[in-house]
Simulated scan of single mutants.
Amino acid sequence: MAGFDVVTTWPELFKDLDDGQQETVRQVFATEHVSGWEPDRAAVADLVAFTLGHIDFDAYLSRSADRAAVELAS
């Protein structure tokens, strides 16, 4: 896969996901990368946690918003 591959970059985050789940998460971030955003480990970990059911959608959105606020402030 060309570009930024989150599965290759942080394989330890994906150990509990099946192949289909890994590909879904990979594609989400590949799309974001094409639009100019390179995710950090925390963003990927949160989507993996949501995919596994460890956090709900509200928590996922809240964490994403918190990260965006920090990025805007810096």
Rank of each mutant, 00 (worst) to 15 (best):
A30I: 13
D16L: 13
V48N: 03
M1N: 10
P11W: 08
V28E: 04
A43F: 00
L47E: 04
T51L: 12
F50D: 00
A73Q: 13
F57R: 12
L72G: 09
W10T: 14
A30K: 11
V7L: 03
A68I: 12
Y60A: 13
A73L: 11
M1E: 09
A68G: 09
A2D: 13
F4Q: 01
A42P: 00
A42Y: 00
S35E: 15
D19L: 13
K15N: 08
A73G: 09
A45G: 10
R67C: 06
D66M: 10
T9N: 05
D19I: 14
A65G: 00
V7P: 01
L72T: 08
S62K: 09
F4M: 07
R67Q: 12
D19W: 05
A59N: 05
L61I: 13
Q21S: 13
E38D: 10
R26I: 06
H33A: 15
A45Y: 08
F14V: 00
E12N: 15
A59M: 08
S62Q: 12
V44R: 03
T51M: 14
E23T: 14
L13R: 14
V25L: 00
Y60Q: 10
L72N: 11
V28M: 07
D66K: 12
H54F: 06
D46S: 15
L61E: 11
L13M: 11
D19N: 11
R26T: 06
V34K: 12
Y60T: 06
V70E: 14
D58T: 11
Q27W: 08
R41E: 10
E38N: 08
F14D: 02
L47A: 05
F29Q: 02
D18Q: 07
V25K: 02
A49I: 02
V34S: 09
Q27Y: 12
D5Y: 13
V28R: 04
A65M: 02
R26E: 01
D56M: 00
K15H: 08
H54S: 07
E12G: 12
P11Q: 07
F50T: 02
R67E: 10
T31I: 15
T31N: 15
V28T: 13
V28L: 07
A59P: 00
L47S: 02
A2E: 12
E71P: 01
V44H: 01
S74M: 07
D66T: 07
K15I: 11
A30L: 14
V6F: 07
K15Y: 07
S74H: 13
T8L: 13
D56C: 01
L47F: 09
S64T: 14
M1G: 13
R41C: 03
E32G: 02
A2H: 06
D56G: 07
L61Y: 01
T9V: 12
F50V: 05
E12V: 11
G53I: 06
V6L: 09
F29V: 14
A73S: 15
